[in-house]
């Protein structure tokens, strides 16, 4: 029973992590319907910026957070401006291939700079976040993951519901042409959604780094795991991303706990194929009924 609970807690936190990691992906998909294959690399870049600032430059943590956020905001903005904007008007498949190219480029670049080693953060989280309930211990990283997930859901929920930018984003997601004709600045919406998504990625990247250490290969694998998560939750649904993340998190921890650890990395994709076959729009996705 203790083992089960431990797995449950671990699954919950890994699931939250996948959920947060998927949020950035969903934001980009919602506003521009681009499947971003460079997602894992965005996570990794965030984690590496943070790593360089805290470990190599030895700056205090709060500075590191600020610089990482500003840096990844700028990065998202730049990616949109340099690579995505020239592709406006091209077929969607070419934009998706572009993100595949970006992903290879960034991964190569990170590997050239940092090589394939795993770098470890010092755990900067305060000790009182370590929770012990009976035999069950929850490490501070997982507590923080949970808290951050909840905060994020709240912030993004308010952002999309009440702020004007958020409403613009939803309108662009809903119907680009209509939004354009009603005076929404679609370009700015794209740029902003890439920038925000990139910040979200940086935060998940940092958390990933604290849990597993920073390793390009590991993080870009997690970036690919976003696909089962969002397909399960439905590509357009932010709440669905979190729930999909939790589901995949539980699934992976239970499979590795009870069946085999090597199956852990592949079970999510098996589920992905099955979901695509039986419930293709995901649990909370927009079902598009299109009669021809």
């Amino acid at each position: 029973m203790g083992f089960f609970l431990q797995l449950l807690v671990q699954g919950l936190s890994i699931g939250c992590l996948y959920g947060i990691a998927a949020l950035g992906f969903v934001m980009i998909f919602k506003s521009s319907s681009v499947l971003n294959f460079a997602h894992g690399e965005l996570l990794a870049i965030g984690a590496y910026i943070f790593f360089v600032i805290t470990i190599w430059l030895n700056l205090p943590i709060y500075m590191a957070f600020i610089i990482t956020f500003v840096g990844s905001f700028a990065l998202g903005f730049l990616i949109e401006r340099l690579f995505l904007r020239p592709m406006i008007g091209e077929a969607l498949i070419e934009v998706v291939m572009l993100t595949v190219g970006l992903s290879a480029m960034f991964r190569g670049l990170l590997l050239v700079i940092f090589s394939g080693n795993t770098y470890v953060f010092s755990n900067f989280l305060p000790a009182w976040l370590n929770i012990r309930i009976g035999s069950l211990s929850i490490s501070s990283v997982y507590t923080v993951t949970l808290i951050i997930t909840i905060i994020f859901l709240a912030i993004l929920g308010f952002f999309f519901k009440y702020s004007s930018q958020g409403i613009y984003m939803r309108s662009v997601a809903d119907n680009q042409t209509a939004a354009l004709s009603l005076g929404v600045n679609v370009r700015r919406v794209f740029a902003l959604s890439w920038a925000i998504a990139s910040i979200v990625c940086a935060i998940s990247g940092i958390i990933l780094g604290v849990i597993n250490g920073v390793n390009v290969h590991a993080i870009s694998r997690i970036g690919l795991k976003v696909f089962p998560v969002v397909i399960l939750g439905g590509l357009e649904s932010i709440g669905g991303a979190i729930i999909g993340g939790l589901f995949i998190g539980f699934l992976e921890t239970f499979v590795s706990g009870y069946l085999s650890t090597s199956l852990r990395d592949v079970v999510a994709y098996v589920v992905l194929v099955i979901i695509l076959m039986i419930k293709p729009y995901g649990l909370f996705g927009l079902v598009e009924i299109e009669r021809v």
């Binding site: 690579f83 020239p86 592709m87 091209e90 070419e94 291939m97 572009l98 595949v100 190219g101 970006l102 992903s103 290879a104 480029m105 960034f106 991964r107 190569g108 670049l109 590997l111 050239v112 090589s115």
Partner: peptide, 16 residues
């Protein structure tokens, strides 16, 4: 890594 970087770059440049 170099190969990966250059392939990525070539893809992106050709697409644009």
């Amino acid at each position: 890594p170099f190969r990966e970087f250059i392939f990525g770059l070539v893809i992106v440049l050709f697409l644009i």
